[in-house]
């Protein structure tokens, strides 16, 4: 798994040709192994942006380059070998075991209609070990807690051996402990990662760069301390944001207040 760089060139999206754009042209670059956080209020276009990167919605204009190649130029399987995604979709109650779900990550690497072999089993084992899921690998996915299920989804993405990982709100619906676990995981993977986050303090902590969206427009791209400034955050999220220093850990922290 060699992380690849991501370059977005003027990508934009509209539901149909003549309709107004939900996401206006935006360009950015993520270096191999870096973590890009995508932040913005609800309806800003975060999911739309991510969908173009994990090859679900074709950009109306522009190109998405992973490792220098346009992922929209080739077949979906070729893109699936490079880009994996951990999404908010909840799997249905179909009785698949943890191991079976993680094995799905091998799908784009299958030759024709072959079934997973010994090499695939080894990769699946590694993914399970890395996510500490080995002890529950034969449990039904439907009987797991939210945190465990999220780890299964990450393990499935790792089994895909991607060069780029896209995560849509990975901390949603998780309790604090599991949120922290997922975040430390993101930092430890050593992959190029694009992650959308609601919590700006988390974004500041784990991201190498931050892209801020509002109403389909890019409001800033760069280092977290530059993009997540008091003025920028206050304007984009329509709140009063204060950058404060926490007395105990001596770290900077954003606090938010409704304007009078």
């Amino acid at each position: 798994m060699k992380p690849a760089g991501l370059i977005a060139e003027d990508i934009s999206w509209a539901p149909r040709k003549n309709l107004p754009k939900l996401l206006h042209p935006v360009s950015f670059e993520v270096k191999p192994g870096q973590v890009l956080g995508v932040v913005g209020p609800n309806g800003a276009g975060k999911s739309t942006l991510l969908r173009m990167i994990y090859r679900y919605q074709a950009p109306t204009s522009g190109r998405v380059l992973v490792g220098g190649e346009d992922i929209w130029a080739g077949p979906p399987r070729a893109a699936a070998r490079k880009v994996a995604a951990v999404l908010q979709e909840q799997p249905g109650a179909f009785g698949l075991s943890v191991r079976e779900v993680v094995t799905l990550g091998r799908t784009p690497h299958r030759l024709g209609y072959s079934t997973p072999g010994a090499a695939d089993a080894e990769i699946v084992n590694n993914a399970l070990d890395r996510m500490e899921l080995r002890h529950i690998e034969f449990r039904d996915l439907g009987n797991l807690s939210g945190g465990e299920r999220q780890r299964v989804m990450v393990a499935r993405a790792l089994a895909q051996q991607p060069q780029l990982l896209v995560m849509d709100e990975p901390t949603n619906h998780l309790d604090i402990r599991h949120q922290l676990e997922i975040l430390s995981l993101i930092q430890s993977l050593g992959l190029t990662i694009v992650v959308s986050l609601h919590d700006l303090n988390m974004a500041a902590e784990i991201c190498d760069a931050v892209l801020m969206l509002q109403d389909g427009h890019c409001r800033g791209f760069g280092a977290p301390e530059d993009v997540l400034s008091e003025a920028q955050v206050s304007q984009t999220f329509r709140v009063n944001a204060w950058r404060e220093v926490l007395s105990r850990s001596n770290t900077e922290h954003l606090s938010f207040h409704l304007p009078d």
Partner: peptide
């Protein structure tokens, strides 16, 4: 022979797409 793809479809449309399934 399409059983693995049927498995993938149970996770969700978008995830199945990211696994290379049209």
């Amino acid at each position: 022979v399409n059983a693995p793809n049927l498995n993938a479809m149970t996770i969700g449309d978008e995830t199945a797409t990211t696994l290379g399934i049209p």
